[in-house]
């Protein structure tokens, strides 16, 4: 730790196959797609670290702002968490546009480039396998929502004055029954959507449904799924969704993507036990 320069750490975003993002013949030795990115906004360029057959996409970050304590408070602050998440995502997206890239989780930080090389070396086989699995493929997100309102038929007649207790209970029961029935229908619709999209995908994964803070009160999230599709199948996917939306009138279907294959990078090879 010299006093002359503020000490830095190496923040890693993604791992590519060596040469993919920085091919020697590539005139873009410092790929503009990466070098031009602000990354986490530390002022340092987004660059690459070669490690055998692999290349990590990294950025220097000030140690003072990214050590354990600083990171924790940083990521505990909603606005800062959002900024970091979007910055992290932007670099991964840019790297994925250049070459197959295995995304690393937010806040993967090393003491220096040497430690990045070591980490990549230790996971070389699994990282290469992951790169093979995602090459030429992208992730799509499909979400299905069940509308929670408005009620189908507000059979109440407000002008009638006081209602009998039994009438009131009946109305509540009917409303409750209607809600449950709508929800069941929505779940079945979600399963049908999943079946169709799964048919186009090489892999599928279900994510947790979002809570009401995300969806709003007017709808319930009944399916949150990610699918890994070959690059050429986007048109088929869109066509399938058009017809699904036409058929499944009980639900709202949303498509998002293409995403870097976040949800499929670790399929079966997550290597947490081997942490040094």
């Amino acid at each position: 730790m010299t006093r002359t320069e503020a000490p830095t750490l190496t923040y890693a975003f993604a791992v590519c196959r060596g040469g993919d993002v920085t091919a020697p013949a590539d005139p873009l030795a410092e790929p503009p797609g990466l070098g031009g990115l602000p990354g986490l906004g530390t002022g340092a360029p987004v660059r690459t670290v070669a490690a055998g057959p692999l290349t990590a996409v990294v950025q220097d970050v000030p140690a003072a702002g990214f050590d354990e304590e600083a990171l924790r408070s940083r990521l505990s602050d909603g606005a800062e968490l959002e900024r970091c998440a979007r910055a992290h995502h932007a670099v991964i997206t840019a790297a994925s546009a250049l070459a197959p890239a295995v995304p690393l989780p937010l806040a993967t930080v090393y003491l220096d480039d040497g430690r990045v090389r070591e980490a990549l070396g230790e996971r070389e086989a699994s990282l290469l396998a992951a790169l093979d699995r995602i090459a030429g493929r992208v992730e799509w997100g499909v979400k299905v929502y069940a509308p929670t309102g408005p009620r189908p038929a507000p059979e109440a007649s407000p002008g009638d004055g006081p209602v009998s207790g039994r009438a009131y209970l009946n109305r509540v029961r009917t409303r409750q029954y209607g809600r449950e029935q709508r929800h069941t229908l929505a779940l079945r619709a979600a399963e049908r959507v999943d079946t169709v999209v799964r048919g186009l995908a090489v892999a599928a994964r279900r994510l947790r449904p979002h809570g009401v803070e995300v969806t709003g009160r007017h709808r319930t999230h009944v399916l949150n799924a990610a699918y890994l599709l070959d690059l050429g199948r986007e048109r088929e996917l869109r066509a399938a969704l058009v017809s699904l939306r036409r058929d499944e009138t009980d639900v709202q279907i949303e498509l998002s993507g293409p995403w870097a294959p976040y949800s499929f990078a670790d399929g079966g090879i997550t290597d947490t036990a081997a942490a040094p």
């Binding site: 791992v15 354990e68 990171l71 995502h89 995304p103 806040a107 990282l127 947490t272």
Partner: peptide, 13 residues
């Protein structure tokens, strides 16, 4: 995606 997903390799921090 950035919190839950991605391949997990242990960072130093």
């Amino acid at each position: 995606r950035v919190l839950d997903k991605g391949i997990v390799i242990a960072g130093d921090i």
